[in-house]
Amino acid sequence: MTQSAPGRLRVATTSLAGCFGCHMSFLDIDERLFELAQHVVLDRTPLTDIKRCGPCDVGLVEGGVCNAENVHVLREFRRNCRVLVAVGACAINGGLPAQRNHLDLGTCLQEVYLTEPGLARGCMPDDPELPLPLDKVHPLHEVVKVDYFLPGCPPPAEAIWSFLADVVAGREPRVPRELIRYD
């Protein structure tokens, strides 16, 4: 699916502060994946394991923005994707990870890594490769311009299919009202 093919749309996907549930819902379009493969070439995505996003037609981003690496990846997607789509509750409003937003980050880290009862030898993770967490978890549209939103936790496979089918057919994507769900 990764060979470039003229006339096919190039699509990238990623999960930031998400659980990959939206990607699972994407895979839930089942045998329509074969039809999609006729029209789409995958760029950076966990499905290809390509590490850098090249110029793309569509970027599907799952999850909110919770650390410095998320900001970096999201900006890479925005730079490269003609159409950027926030997929799922976390990308749209921060979702579950954002439930920490009313807590102090330092206190959170201390409790989890140092003072939590049952920790044999707590220590604060300080590997330089670990991305620094942000003070608050943000929805995508607070960091970059987002073109389309697919709500849901996860969005129904039908909603993802309907969106991609619209893009492939060159139509303005529109989520049918019966597929709008926030839960």
């Binding site: 979702g95 929805p139 839960d183």
Partner: peptide, 28 residues
């Protein structure tokens, strides 16, 4: 803080239903 996936009122909530009705996809 309206986090529908963890709210037990989801599906019976008027705010959510009105938002669906108006085609709200994101708070934006």
């Amino acid at each position: 803080n309206h986090f529908c996936p963890s709210c037990e009122k989801s599906g019976n909530c008027l705010l959510q239903a009105v938002a669906y009705e108006l085609g709200v996809l994101s708070a934006d």
